[in-house]
Amino acid sequence: MNKLMKKIMISVVLTGVAFALYQNFSLMPEYQGLNEGLSNYIIKSGLNDTGSLNLITAVLYDYRAFDSLGESTVIFGAVSGIVLILSRKMLPVSSKGLSFIVKRALGIMTPFIALFGFYVITHGHLTPGGGFQGGVILAAISIIFSIVYGSAFDYRRYSPQTKTLFETGGALTFLGLGLAGILMEGAFLQNLGFLTAETGTLISAGSIPYINIGVGFKVGAGLAIIFYSMIQKTFEEDF
């Protein structure tokens, strides 16, 4: 296939995608303002229903918690597939890492990154953020360890077994809270009413903070496993 054919094919595919997107967006309803529709209901009664100040977290982990469970399952499947394909042996040949100055500077910065990650996870129902974002920040620490200190350091500190434990623990926390919703409130992933406290405090909003912590550990450990299994072959060839 020559260059011209390739370009024609790419333009045809792009035109098709643009047409499909235009069709989809033209089917969407007009913007009706904040006083009508489903968003109005959530803005009005979201705080009363869930006790969560951050309404996006209220939608993600209370109204649509089942969708979030599906997202976590997708991430779990992706991690399993990548590890199955890429992972040959658990301990790779590691690099020596970067220079002394970078190592010391990131040694000072890393605890604050971890603190920010835990802040974003645990304050998911009060301020912007939540389990997913905070979990990715925690995964960034593992990436920093792999790049700056060499992946053997990452292996010694947080071995893949520990990460697997964190991931399954987070998923089981999510599912256990869902089953607790069946037993106590009558529906899967129903918000646990007896955990609700005064609005605005750290431990309030029923089971939302605990689901946040579970999802945070699950996502963070899962993405760290993905990066670890992608990086190991590189260092085998380089050093």
């Binding site: 951050n54 996006i56 977290t57 974003v120 912007p128 953020g129 939540g130 997913f132 974002q133 990715v136 920040i137 995964a139 960034a140 990436i143 790049i147 993405l223 993905i226 990066f227 992608m230 990086i231 072959k233 590189t234």
Partner: peptide, 24 residues
């Protein structure tokens, strides 16, 4: 919320994973 997710995933994690992919 979306801004935080985009900053963390798009600018941080994607770059690292793409870098490791092209180095392979």
């Amino acid at each position: 919320d979306v801004a935080l997710a985009e900053a963390v995933i798009g600018a941080g994690l994607n770059t690292a994973i793409f870098m490791s992919a092209i180095s392979q």
